[in-house]
Every structure is written in structure tokens, then in C-alpha cells.
Design a protein around this nucleic acid. Sequence first.
DNA 1: ATTCTGACGTGGG
DNA 2: CCCCACGCCAGAA
Length: 111
Amino acid sequence: MAEDGFFQKVYRVARQIPYGRVTSYGAIAKYIGAAGSARMVGWAMNGAGKYPDVPAHRVVNRKGLLTGKHHFQGTNLMQQLLESEGIEVLENQIQKLDSIFWDPGKELPAF
DNA sequence: ATTCTGACGTGGG
DNA sequence: CCCCACGCCAGAA
């Protein structure tokens, strides 16, 4: 791939998150080879707003908590998007996380 | 160049 | 389960 920017890597993986599923920053970070630098993934998401194909709302922290909801336009836009996909959200936290969690390192073969 | 921050994760208590 | 401290590295001031 020509575009080997950190952001592009993150977006590439985020774009492949299936409908109704969620993943964590750490899972993506590990998949792109930046394990331990999960913060950078979230940071990259900061610029994901410019990419409509990047479902940032499907990316949450390890506990399934919507830590980045405050970065969305609305107050609870992130939760609405998740609920519209059939995901149960209560108190900014995803329910049944273990059931809808999507790990790129396991679901996806590799680069 | 230096310092601080941050949409996180892990390990120890 | 909770809380605390450390690591991580890109970008802004």
C-alpha cells in the first residue's frame, strides 16, 4: 500500500468493522502493529470525522464504554448510532460486549 | 528542542 | 469488580 500513514492504517481496519459489531482501540492497534499504543488509534479517530466510511462509533475502549461519545456532534449521537444497529447501550456502556465484540486479529486473516 | 496532553491498555493491590 | 501507576507515541503550544 502506498499510504502507510498511521491514520490510513487505522481507518482501513475500522472500515471493515461489520454492522452491529464493535471493537476496541487496543485490538485495532495490535492489528496494525502498534500494540501498546492504543492511544494513537483513538487519536487517529479524531480525524475520522472527515471519512464517512469510518464508523468511529463502533470503536470503544476495552470495557465497552463510549469514552469518545463526547467527541461526536450530538450529546448522545454515538449511542444512537449503536442502538440503531441493534447494539444495547446503557449508561454509555455497551451491553453483551463479549457477544458483539469483533477482533480484527481473529476475524481478519492479516494484511 | 522541551513539555504536556490524550477517543487506551495492562499489571499490581 | 474497583482504584492507582506506568507505558505508549503523535501532535500542539
